[in-house]
Simulated scan of single mutants.
Amino acid sequence: MAEKVDIGEGKVDIDTMLLHCGSRLSTKTKSYARQFFDRFGWVAPFDRSDVMKMIGLKKSGASKLLSKWIQIGLIRPVSGFGKGKYTFNALMKD
């Protein structure tokens, strides 16, 4: 049986990513991220309206939360699903 070769950066689990965020995210914000990950996983895109519905934030609060997650590398914008769609960033950002 052939051994699999590591060809690049590996995926990490969401708990490792949240741990890596350390003090850059509050416990509450990490909890929100965990809720989103449980619903959308690595692949399904989500947007600001999903944040508004799931967490109960208004537009500006939802936008700030998404901006924070992008800034620390937790999520990334995706194309092909319409403007303003994001997925969790499966590759850990240093």
Rank of each mutant, 00 (worst) to 15 (best):
M17H: 08
M17R: 11
L19C: 05
S23C: 03
S23G: 14
R24Y: 12
R24C: 09
R24Q: 12
L25Q: 01
S26A: 13
S26E: 05
S26D: 04
T27N: 10
K28A: 14
T29L: 06
T29D: 08
T29I: 05
T29H: 08
K30M: 06
K30P: 00
K30A: 00
A33F: 10
R34M: 14
Q35P: 00
Q35W: 10
Q35H: 02
Q35K: 14
F37V: 04
F37I: 01
F37A: 03
D38T: 10
R39P: 00
R39A: 13
F40M: 10
W42M: 04
A44Q: 14
P45K: 06
P45C: 03
R48H: 06
R48V: 12
R48L: 12
D50K: 10
D50S: 13
D50G: 01
V51H: 01
M52K: 15
M52E: 13
K53Y: 11
I55C: 06
L57I: 04
L57V: 08
L57E: 01
K58A: 12
K58W: 02
K59H: 15
K59N: 14
A62E: 04
A62I: 07
S63V: 06
L65H: 00
L66G: 07
S67Y: 08
K68D: 09
K68E: 12
I70N: 12
I70Y: 05
I70Q: 14
I70L: 15
Q71N: 13
G73P: 06
G73W: 05
G73R: 05
L74V: 04
I75F: 05
I75R: 00
R76P: 00
R76K: 13
R76Q: 14
P77W: 03
P77T: 15
G80I: 09
G80M: 04
G80V: 08
G82Q: 05
G82K: 05
G82P: 01
G82R: 04
Y86F: 13
T87G: 03
F88V: 04
N89L: 08
N89C: 13
A90H: 13
L91P: 01
L91F: 13
L91A: 04
